[in-house]
Each structure stands twice: as C-alpha cells, then as structure tokens.
C-alpha cells in the first residue's frame, strides 16, 4: 500500500499520466415531452495502462459516459456542462482531423452485441481491412500489408484458421467467435485506449471466461488502457485495476478493485454487493427497494436518496460530491463527509 508519489486531492490515482479525464459532465437527451437529465456531473480519470471498470445497473448512464469520450453520442444528446479530455485535449473542441485521429489511433470500442456491430453483408476481411485503412497508420492502397495485419489480428484474437476468417461472413460464426472478431478489429492497429461496452453480456459463462482472458491478455501485452463497462461486479473484479460504481448518472464510489470488495462504503455499493448470489451459499439478500429514478424529474439531491436505507435530511436537498476516504478511494455520500476533517489517514 505504500506509495512514494505525492497524493493530490482529486486525481491521486493517476495524476498527470491520465489518458482520459471527464470533468463534471452533464448530458441530457431531448425526447418527446421533455428532457432526460441522464449524466449528472460525472467525474472520471483513466490512467495510462490502467484497466478501469464501470459497474452499474441498466440505464444508469454507463454507455452514455463512454460514448461521450469518442464523441459518438446520438443526435438528441445535449452536453450542458463539463468537459472530456483525451490526452489532455478537449474532445469537443477538436478539429475534424484531430477527431479522426482520436477514433483511428487513440481509442477503439467494442459493443455488447457483436451481431449488431458487424455488417452482415460484408466478409470479416472486408470489414477489418476498412478499419485498418481508415486508421491512418497504414499508407493508402497497400492491400497486401493490410491483409497481413488483418490475419495477424485474427490470429491474436485466437480465431481458428485466420486466413479463412477473411472470407467468412458474420452469420457463419458463433456468438463468442463474433465477439473475438470484434476484438480483433478493435486491436488490429495500435491504440492507446480500448473501450469495451458489456463485451460478454450475451455470451455463456464458459465463453465469457475465454473472451475476458483474451481481452485482458491483449490489453496487457500492448500496455493499453481499458475501460470495461459491465453490470457484473464479478467480471470487473477479475479484469480491472480500479472500479467506478455508477448509479443514475453519477459516479458514487471509486476505489482499487480489491478495496471495493473489502471495504465498500457507499450504501448503493454495499446493497449491490449483498444482492449478488454467492457460490458459498447463504441465501439471497432482499435486494434494493424501488427502482432507478425517472430522468425527466430526478431527485434534487442525491439521486440514490429515495432508495437509500441510510438517507438523511441533507440528502434530499444537496448533491454529494466525491470525498477522499482512503488511498485512491472516493465516495459521493454525505455519510463520509466528516472523515477528512478529522485529519486521519484511512488505509484499506
């Protein structure tokens, strides 16, 4: 636990070496009948070579958060406040050619459903070649070089018979193989960041295990950063270095992966952990009462307050910000607002 580096209050985990910084991001969606206020001041830092997990339930804004990094939010999305920095450059003030470079060489993304992500009428070879030629790392028109890279990428993603994969259509593959093909495409050319949006949710548990091991190995080999979105704390535990717990458009807790499981602090985190059926038995907890708030009229204070067993008067009016409760451990909850003023250094 001992660390020689000087801890800074806000981003002690990564400091200057961050690859992505999201600062107080507010994103809404214009829909019929009003405005869905989804992201409500998201703060997040991803360090170079770091594997980050974003864990939360359906509809809590995980995908919206990462889509904002690549600037691929849908048309009805509005950014009201905050900024997204990729390698210290504001993504929303980039020139088109800079944005192209971000998407071609900076970050790549794989999606939950590989069947929808792949084009059914083109072969895998055609699709991966297009990605490589648009990445800006290969001179145009060198077909042979592109093919060699493509086959190498398929081979690294442990797809059998990589040459034949070039001529294969997505429907000829199983779900696990399709997701491997997506990983191959995302990693065919060098990138700094990989974003994986629930990459194994549609897969069986034995295949999930294989795909996660593959993803982790490839990211480690290349020294890339990884943002893994998942609703499974177990998946995040086995893959990531640091975990952000997200609820209703807010990051509610962040800590090193081991710390989140040893010393969960936010009532939502502890609730979520108790809900998971354990292999050791002992029954299933009662669950968290209520459901995610209506984004049209979200609670004014802490958005978890209506479901929180420890809610106080203050939670109804004010929104809690992140407070440092230990090394690299921050919680957005009023229950822990007293801790830093005592001047006590907490270590997990």
């Amino acid at each position: 636990m001992a660390d020689a580096s000087v801890a800074k209050p806000m981003s002690s985990a990564v400091g200057a070496e961050s690859i992505v910084q999201i600062k107080d991001l507010h994103v809404g969606f214009k829909v019929f009948g009003g405005l869905l206020k989804v992201l409500n001041g998201v703060n997040m830092v991803v360090g170079r070579g770091e594997k980050i997990g974003i864990v939360g339930e359906t509809g809590c804004g995980k995908t919206t958060t990462v889509k904002s990094i690549l600037r691929i939010l849908p048309g009805e999305a509005r950014i009201f406040h905050g900024e997204v920095l990729f390698q210290d450059k504001n993504v929303y003030k980039m020139h088109p050619h800079e944005l192209q470079k971000l998407r071609g060489q900076g970050a790549s993304m794989i999606f939950q459903d590989p069947t929808a992500a792949l084009n059914p009428v083109f072969t895998l070879g055609e699709q991966i070649s297009e990605i490589i030629s648009h990445s800006g790392t290969q001179p145009e028109g060198k077909k042979e070089a592109i093919k060699i890279l493509a086959v190498k990428a398929f081979r690294e993603a442990t797809l059998p018979d990589a040459e034949r994969m070039m001529e294969t259509y997505p429907f000829q593959l199983s779900g696990g193989m399709r997701q491997r093909a997506c990983i191959a495409m995302a990693l065919a050319t060098p990138r700094d960041l990989m974003i994986a949006d629930e990459p194994t949710t549609n897969l069986d548990v034995t295949i999930q295990d294989q795909v996660l091991r593959l993803l982790k190995n490839l990211v480690d080999q290349r020294g890339m950063s990884l943002i893994l979105i998942t609703h499974s704390l177990g998946v995040a535990r086995e893959t990531t270095d640091r975990i952000y717990i997200m609820y209703a458009g807010n990051m509610v807790e962040v800590a090193r992966t081991a710390e989140i499981f040893e010393r969960p602090l936010h009532p939502y985190t502890t609730g979520l952990l108790s809900c998971i059926p354990k292999l050791t038995g002992g029954g299933v907890a009662e669950g968290i009462p209520g459901r995610i708030p209506d984004y049209m009229n979200p609670p004014a204070g802490c958005r978890f307050e209506p479901r929180c067993p420890k809610a106080m008067e203050r939670c109804k009016k004010e929104k809690p910000e992140f407070v440092e409760v230990g090394k690299d451990h921050q919680v957005a909850c009023f229950l822990y607002y007293q801790v830093p003023q005592n001047g006590v250094q907490h270590h997990g």
Binding site: V205, S232, L233, G234, V235, L273, I276, K278, L279, T280
Partner: peptide
C-alpha cells in the same frame, strides 16, 4: 462451468 463463474470474494 464452476471455474468460469466470475465471483466477488476470496472464499468463493
């Protein structure tokens, strides 16, 4: 199957 399950504690 059992060895593939992602779990959340050392005991598991």
């Amino acid at each position: 199957l059992l060895s593939s399950i992602p779990v959340i504690s050392g005991a598991e």
